[in-house]
Design a protein around this nucleic acid. Structure first.
Length: 476
RNA sequence: GUCCCCAUCGUCUAGCCAGGUCAGGACUCCAGCCUUUCAAGCUGGCAACACGGGUUCGAAUCCCGUUGGGGACACCA
């Protein structure tokens, strides 16, 4: 069993492409065999070396593995050209001297008349003598493959039998007038050369498949099994576009999605193990994967569900792994050289409260910032309590003298103080949380204080008391 | 326009191939529990077989049509 993932380097790796790669990998891993990464860079004008390395990097990041490659399709150009010449020599292809503009004109005319257009119905291949004469004269020509006059049936792994009537099969160009092979030529040549047994690709290739099947047959090569995956759609079942959110793997990475989460989410968009499992490791997916369970209808990309899945991975993955993925986001906030142990403690405390790494990194800022900005409106109820600064100063005193700065001791100190002063613990808890994080919401206060550490806690508390005193009480 | 593909809660889906269960799960949303807040977690709730014909004792499931959505119709890949 030999499969390949064959992206064209004309842009960033799209989530649809990533999913195709994932299914290819899953198939290969579950059945054993070889997974080849082949870059379809036949079109020099639209191909970009930077994009190739970009795609390879994105694939590595999301965790797709392959056995061979990346192989550049352009490296086989001479071989593809020779194969086309061979078809020409065997009479399976012919010289086409018709200028592209003329074909185009006929095509548009047919369109206008709402008629089915076929090249072969409009232009007959010239007789041998004429071909030789025009060749001699140095006229430019393309090489066109002769499509067999019979319907072609594709046995698709996800769709079953698909029949293409012969009246819709047209001769196609396999060698351009500049001598370069076209996509269809190169794909089939390489699939033959690589002995590909299963072609798993996007549904946009389904209508190309009869051309490929005919080419395989012309080469006398075994026709691989095909599986055409439905496309990924955007909201409203419209084409997925950047307008409605990220579409490339790179964007999700930049937004703080974990590779495991994106892999898992994409794998489940069009495939299911059938037993209701959703959060699955790559190994579990490999064990459960079969092409029979691939869905045949297009799926709408749901950013909310991806966010949920990402949150699941953020709270479940081993802490060091989260830390590694979080590093770039931490660096971006200028927290690069910060105390690693404190950082890890804070991350562990906040990981169940964020949907993305970006958001998680944001929670870390108060731990390492000298002073915080407090929002007057959010602090209104604290500003209204005249004796609060005094209580907080007492709390500062207790916390300063604490021999061990752990959550239990902190809790005992705070509750003890509240009892002595006849206060409910919440009267101290809520303003303290605000003081430390400039936010009403957050982790359990005692754990928060412990993770914050003694010096930052005292500093923030003192700043907050100053804020409460400096700001005149607002409102009635 | 022509050809091809697809059609179960708003979304992802199980069930379909080998017709017979209150059509199951997940995300979102809502409510409750937990609780010092917010998350997480737990419990419960709202919500679907596109439509019309057949076949059959019986259809989400098989067949045909309609509608809707998507893809392809290049000397792009």
């Amino acid at each position: 069993m030999r499969v390949r993932f064959a992206p064209s380097p004309t842009g960033y790796l799209h989530v649809g492409g990533a999913r195709t790669a994932i299914y290819n990998e899953l198939l290969r891993q579950s059945l054993g065999g070889c997974h080849i990464l082949r870059i379809e860079d036949t079109d020099k004008a639209r191909s970009d070396e930077a994009m190739t390395s970009q795609i390879v990097a994105a694939l590595r990041w999301i965790g797709v593995e392959w056995d061979e490659g990346p192989v550049l399709q352009s490296a086989g150009l001479e071989r593809h050209r020779a194969a086309a010449r061979q078809l020409l020599a065997e009479g399976k292809a012919y010289h086409d001297f018709v200028p592209p503009a003329e074909v185009e004109a006929r095509r548009q005319e047919a369109q206008r008349k709402k008629e089915n257009f076929r090249y072969k119905d409009c232009f007959a291949p010239p007789p041998k003598a004429e071909v030789e004469r025009r060749l001699e004269a140095g006229e430019p020509y393309a090489v066109r493959f002769r499509m067999p006059e019979e319907p072609i049936v594709v046995r698709d792994l996800v769709r079953g039998e698909v029949t293409f009537g012969r009246e819709h099969l047209d001769d196609l160009i396999i060698l351009r007038s500049d001598g370069t092979p076209t996509y269809h030529m190169s794909v089939v040549c390489d699939d033959v050369a690589m002995a590909i047994t299963h072609v798993i690709r996007g549904e946009d290739h389904l209508s190309n498949t009869p051309k490929h099947v005919a080419l395989f047959r012309a080469f006398g090569a075994p026709v691989p099994a095909f599986g055409h995956l439905p496309l990924i759609l955007g909201p409203g079942k419209k084409r997925l576009s950047k307008r409605t959110g990220a579409t490339s793997v790179e964007e999700f990475r930049a937004r703080g999605i974990l590779p495991q989460a994106l892999y898992n989410y994409l794998a489940l968009l069009g495939w299911s193990p059938g037993d209701g499992r959703e959060i699955m490791s790559r190994e579990e997916m490999i064990a459960a994967f079969t092409v029979e369970r691939l869905g045949s209808s297009a799926a709408v990309f749901d950013h909310d569900k991806l966010a949920w899945m990402n949150a699941q991975y953020m709270s479940r993955l081993p802490l060091p792994e989260i830390l590694a993925h979080l590093q770039p986001f931490v660096d971006r906030l200028g927290l690069g050289g910060v105390d690693g142990e404190r950082l890890a403690g804070a991350v562990d405390l906040h990981r169940t409260r964020a949907k993305t790494l970006e958001e998680l990194a944001g929670f870390l800022v108060p731990y390492f910032q000298d002073s915080l900005e407090y929002d007057r409106e959010a602090c209104a109820r604290f500003l209204a309590q005249e004796d609060l600064p005094d209580h907080l100063e007492a709390l500062i005193g207790r916390l300063r003298r604490l021999p061990s700065f752990d959550a239990d001791s902190i809790e005992a100190a705070l509750r003890g103080l509240a009892d002595e002063r006849g206060l409910k613990a919440g009267v101290l808890i809520h303003p303290t949380r605000m003081a430390l994080t400039a936010s009403k919401a957050g982790p359990s206060l005692f754990e928060l204080v412990a993770a914050m550490g003694q010096s930052a806690t005292l500093r923030h508390l003192a700043n907050f008391v100053r804020f409460l005193r400096s700001a005149p009480t607002a409102g009635p």
